[in-house]
């Protein structure tokens, strides 16, 4: 395996992580509360996303650059990190597409 293998930083997609700062993709994703978290791609347009919060790991990744995560922020949701929304392109809503 290539030399600049980090166990803790610069992690590739699929590698185990506990904080998004470790991932090259900057999203450390877990499927459930008990599952292990792994680095994955940021959410693409029209995919489920979570508003960027301070937590290390996400149930849904934040959106890719240029996109926003449209979700109703609920206080409860932001505590349990289950604020889910869908990525959208703000410029789309500008032009009538």
């Amino acid at each position: 395996p290539p030399q600049n293998k980090g166990i803790f930083i610069n992690l590739e997609n699929g590698e185990l992580c506990f904080n998004s700062l470790q991932c090259k993709s900057s999203c450390c994703h877990r499927t459930s509360g008990v599952s292990l978290a792994r680095c994955v791609h940021l959410a693409a347009d029209k995919q489920e996303c979570s508003v960027k919060t301070l937590y290390g790991t996400y149930y849904r990744c934040p959106c890719e650059s240029g996109l926003k995560c449209k979700s109703g922020i609920s206080i409860g949701g932001s505590i349990t990190n289950t604020n889910f929304g869908v990525c959208y392109d703000p410029r789309d809503t500008a032009e009538s597409s």
Binding site: P1, G14, E15
Partner: peptide
């Protein structure tokens, strides 16, 4: 691709 994960991530 995906086969060069670090040892911990590969085995678990």
């Amino acid at each position: 691709p995906g086969c060069d994960k670090n040892i911990v991530s590969q085995i678990v």
